[in-house]
Design a protein around this nucleic acid. Structure first.
Length: 641
RNA sequence: GCCGGUGUAGCUCAGGUGGUUAGAGCGACGGUCUCAUAAUCCGUAGGUCGGAGGUUCAACUCCUCCCGCCGGCACCA
């Protein structure tokens, strides 16, 4: 075994959502990299895990009548069983509720404290429960766009991390380590963000009980990111593996990994991870997947119907790694049939069958065709190069290019004709050996991406050692296949009919969705039941809602979303109202229109204009507001009660 | 609004530093072989290379402006 080590991580997944294809995407990519690095001779550890603390979990658990830990146990187990179903080899699965984790988090805190980067302060602010963050810009009474409920006002004593002290050091670090953040365009975004200057970070809470206690001051528990990021260290506690070589993450959590995490580590005097790679999002037919849209795809129905390698192949081949990609069931089956069934599967099938028929199942001894050898060698180099850069789609493209060359070669040689010609037996041997050798290399080459199919073909080629045990030297052209007895031939990627296959997956999808909903306790209704925000009639009448008519409307300079409105609500002068509806309404659509106004909202300056009220609109997922309106005609100034 | 990216055949995309008829894969259509999973292989598909200007002997490739889309920030929520 080599002493070269490679440690990579998936994110730890938050247990307020059930496993979906997005989680699977990250984990599959990470596992592919792990296999690749093993092939390159590294001693690899891949970790994943679950993030289990916080208010949201506390509430979801309560709604289900469980303790937070019981609840987290269930969801965490579901993540683990999902990875098992997808046959993903995860070496360590770390939970934020594991005991060794609390110790490391506290150690991180103590070191930061000792080094003067943590101080105690108080914070009064509005707290968004869903995103578990204080909201800086909101005012009392504002609604959380994610829940539609008011922010909660919280005053508490917190420990703060002096993130502001790291602005320069981080920028220097990015500069000195150009590969720390990938892809490049993401690095630029992070640099731009940091350059604006960083604000200190509250890292503990006293208002929450479901979290890791701060030993230094047990009234406090740790804030989500201070807690969660540290799993990357606690997962390999005592193994001498830190620092990690790679954190593979989705783009939505890049800031935490590329700014907060390195700052924490610098403060503690610990080593930083070598690289943070943020991949893009998986869209469903070009739309964002979301609970409200109801278009979330789960991995299990796909793997059960088409096999885990079909899912792996689609994700790695169809999507340019790093960019957003689009998933659809049709494209999934299309890729499967054209590339896996007709391409790799068929090449294996025809090559092995011919050896079986013409040579009794023994690979003949002959010379390999030199031109094919060159093509395979060149393709192998191209694939390895792309793999190394995590350009999976290119790597697979290069491999499929080899497959195409070999298919052409077989047709040109026409072994079925050679077989009938007693004078062409040597040429037939050459053809069969060359094809088999190419199949051998191709199989080894795809094995990080398609481990199970590769293993099946590998066995059929007559090898007993697992394909996963191969090292890159096995990719060299011309190794001794001659004389090898092949095993029983069995198609690895049977062709699938588009329609029934998609229908089957969609049926299973519904079953899986229901199962998950049951497991989660149907969070939507549960949440309302758990935390009803009642107001009495007096509270309501404090809100002065009036019918107004838009007199004028114009865009606000320097803002995409704002319109500057003058609204007549029956007062001497029309009100000036700045509303964030410019993306949904053109000024001319609004003039003359009756709208509902909150007349007694405290004035607020927006982009230099003082807004004397707020316009009432339905807030939809995805942003576009829809103005409240009346079916009957109503006079300007009328009060809503 | 600022910063970055992007817009090439039905779909997904290649096309360093400008130069003969703009490419690939998939899909579609036609043909072929029969070892193979109605697979393979061969051929065809004629797309104003987002729009308008400009530089140049010559621009998909350089410059300017405009339009669309994506991302980050601001802003909104």
């Amino acid at each position: 075994m080599s002493n070269r080590k490679y440690y990579l991580t998936t994110p730890i997944y938050y247990v307020n959502a059930a496993p979906h294809i997005g989680h699977a995407y990250t984990t599959i990519a990470a596992e592919t990299i792990a296999r690749l690095k093993r092939m390159q001779g590294y001693d690899v550890v891949l970790t994943s895990g679950t993030d289990e603390h916080g208010t949201k979990v506390e509430r979801a658990a309560k709604a289900k009548g469980k303790t937070p830990k019981e609840y987290a146990d269930i969801i965490s187990a579901d993540f683990q069983s999902t990875w098992k179903k997808l046959e993903l080899q995860i070496d360590r699965f770390q939970r934020t509720t594991n005991e060794n984790h609390a110790r490391i988090v506290n150690e991180l805190f103590e070191r930061c404290l000792a080094n003067g980067y943590i101080y105690k302060g108080t914070y009064t602010g509005l707290y968004a429960v869903v995103s578990e963050a204080f909201v800086n810009d909101a005012k009392p009474g504002d609604l959380d766009p994610e829940t539609g409920k008011p922010y909660e006002e919280v005053t508490e004593e917190n420990y703060f991390f002096k993130l502001s002290a790291f602005t320069e050091r981080l920028l220097e670090y990015y500069e000195a380590n150009p590969n720390f953040i990938r892809p490049d365009f993401r690095k630029n975004e992070v640099v731009a963000f940091v350059k604006q200057g960083l604000v200190d970070l509250s890292i503990t809470r006293t208002s929450i009980t479901w979290g890791i206690p701060v030993n230094h001051d047990p009234k406090h528990v740790f804030y989500v990111w201070f807690d969660a990021l540290t799993t990357y260290m606690s997962a390999v506690d005592g193994e001498g593996r830190w620092p990690a070589d790679l954190h593979l993450i989705g783009k939505e959590i890049l800031r935490f990994h590329a700014v907060f995490w390195p700052a924490f580590l610098m403060a503690a005097g610990w080593e930083l991870p070598k690289e943070v790679f943020a991949h893009g999002w998986l869209l469903f037919e070009n739309d964002k997947m979301s609970k409200t849209r109801g278009n979330i795809v789960r991995p299990a129905p796909i793997s059960e119907t088409m096999g885990v390698d079909a899912l792996r192949y689609f994700l790695l081949r169809e999507i340019v790694f790093g960019q957003d990609g689009s998933f659809s069931f049709d494209a999934l089956v299309g890729r499967y049939n054209s590339d896996l069934a007709n391409g790799l599967g068929n090449l294996a099938s025809r090559t092995l069958s011919m050896i079986q028929q013409y040579r009794g199942g023994v690979v003949p001894d002959a010379e390999c065709d030199a031109a094919i050898g060159e093509a395979v060698t060149g393709g192998t180099a191209a694939a390895l190069d792309a793999y190394e850069k995590f350009e999976f789609s290119r790597a697979l493209e290069a491999i499929w290019n080899i497959i195409s060359v070999v298919d052409k070669f077989i047709v040109e040689r026409a072994p079925w004709k050679l077989a009938k010609d007693p004078h062409a037996q040597r040429k037939l041997d050459e053809t069969l050996l060359t094809s088999a050798e190419a199949l051998r290399v191709v199989t080894a080459l795809v094995s990080p991406a398609l481990p199970h199919a590769a293993q099946a073909i590998w066995r059929q080629l007559g090898f007993n050692e697992p394909v996963a045990a191969l090292r890159t030297d096995a990719l060299a052209w011309g190794s001794a296949l001659a004389g090898q007895k092949i095993a029983e031939i069995k198609g690895v990627f049977p062709r699938l009919d588009l329609k029934p296959t998609v229908e089957k997956m969609q049926e299973l999808e519904i079953v899986e969705k229901n199962r998950q909903a049951e497991m989660m306790g149907v969070p939507k209704t549960a949440e309302v039941a758990a935390a009803p925000v009642y107001i009495d009639i007096d509270d309501f009448t404090r809100v002065d809602l009036r019918v107004g008519q838009v007199k004028s409307a114009e865009p606000v300079k320097g803002a995409d979303k704002l319109l500057h409105l003058k609204v007549d609500i029956g007062e001497a002068e029309p009100r000036t109202i700045v509303a964030g509806i410019a993306l949904a309404y053109k000024p001319e659509q609004l003039i003359g229109r009756k709208v509902v106004i909150v007349a007694n909202l405290a004035p607020r300056k927006l982009r230099g204009i003082t807004s004397q009220g707020m316009i009432v609109a339905a807030s939809l997922e995805g942003g576009a507001p829809v103005l409240a309106a009346f079916l009957e005609d109503v006079p300007v100034g009328a009060r809503l009660k």
